[in-house]
Amino acid sequence: MTNATNATNVAIQALICDCDGVLIDSEAVAASVLVRELEARWPGALVAPVLMPLLGQRIERVLSGTSEALGRRLSEADVAAIRAVAEREAAQAPLFPGVAGALEAITLTKACASNSYTSVVRQVLERTGLTRFFGDRIYCADAVANPKPAPDVYLAAAQGLGVAPQACIVVEDSVTGVTAARAAGMRVLGFVGGAHVGGDAHAHELREVGAQAVFDDMRMLPALVADWMQNAEARAQ
């Protein structure tokens, strides 16, 4: 991991946002679909307590992790079918209140870095009108060697933007995502406003893995980013 102390002395040049659970309130939708589909295949299995902590990883990993923990099996056809349903329903989830206004107010170059598939993220951004903020600056797990919690997606985003990882500030909602961004050497703001987040425990978990601040309302984001920018500039002088 890049030294966090050194990172705080670099001026912020870019804002990188996760998609699911940060731009759209989709994680609870996806979780509901996954639980429903697995319970239909595994009658009597207690799926939710095992599956929920795995959110933020690729759907395939959530399914394989749940299967292994419960001693169950899924065919490749099952995995493909469940993923298709979950992605289709989650992609229709609403924007978080205040997202568009927050992105409008922040003047930094913006990118989206997701553990989902590029085609799915493009669909979400087009449907919600957020493409105007991100353009083609979309970096997804299907285009790198390793998905989050590996740092690959975030390192690819920094490279694509032409900035140092230390010059990026990331907004993430999951332990998996925060871990990935911190491993890339980036500053991280943890967002806990999603319907899938349960109380203060999740905020604590995000801080434990490296989120430097945690917030639950997207309308707070511009002020948080401005504070980081001012503090970084002051330290760099």
Rank of each mutant, 00 (worst) to 15 (best):
A40E: 12
Y154V: 06
T179R: 11
A100K: 12
Y139S: 04
L189A: 07
V175P: 04
T118F: 00
I106N: 09
M218T: 01
D18N: 04
A7W: 11
R83Y: 01
I16W: 04
R182Y: 05
A91S: 15
L55T: 13
V144Q: 03
A141T: 11
P222F: 10
Q92E: 15
L34E: 14
K110H: 08
V163I: 13
A7H: 07
N146A: 12
T8Y: 02
G101I: 03
A80D: 12
F134G: 14
A81P: 05
G160K: 08
A203I: 01
I169C: 14
A164C: 05
H196Y: 06
L103I: 06
V197A: 02
V163F: 02
S174M: 09
Y154K: 03
E60G: 00
G98I: 06
A30T: 12
V188I: 04
G160Y: 03
E27A: 07
D173F: 01
V99Y: 10
V209H: 09
S32D: 15
Q237A: 15
Y139C: 07
V163D: 00
Q212R: 02
S119M: 07
A30Q: 13
V10W: 09
D173H: 05
D200Y: 00
D216Q: 11
E126Y: 02
R41Y: 05
V33M: 08
C168L: 05
P151Y: 09
Q123V: 10
E76P: 03
A145Y: 00
A150Q: 09
F191R: 04
A180K: 10
E39Y: 10
P149W: 06
G177V: 09
D136M: 03
H204F: 10
L55E: 09
T66I: 14
R72W: 01
V29E: 11
I169H: 11
Q159S: 11
T176A: 12
D173C: 01
L125P: 02
P94T: 07
V192D: 05
A100G: 12
R88I: 00
A90L: 10
L34Y: 00
F96Q: 10
L38H: 06
P222H: 12
A31L: 15
L108M: 05
L15R: 11
G71H: 02
L63S: 06
A80W: 06
L95V: 06
L74P: 12
T179L: 02
C140D: 00
A111P: 04
Y154R: 07
V85M: 04
A113F: 01
N146C: 11
E89L: 14
K110A: 08
S32V: 00
D152T: 03
A28C: 07
L70M: 08
E126A: 14
R36H: 08
T109K: 13
G193C: 07
M220L: 12
V79M: 12
M186D: 07
K148R: 11
K148W: 00
A213Q: 14
A143E: 15
A150K: 05
F215D: 13
V214A: 02
L46I: 10
F215Q: 13
M52S: 05
A180H: 07
D152V: 05
Q237L: 15
V10E: 11
I12L: 14
R187W: 03
F134H: 06
V85C: 05
Y117E: 01
L161S: 01
R207K: 15
C168K: 02
D173R: 09
L55F: 12
L54E: 06
H202S: 04
Q230T: 15
C168H: 07
A157G: 03
R61D: 15
S64K: 14
Q159W: 08
N146V: 07
E37T: 12
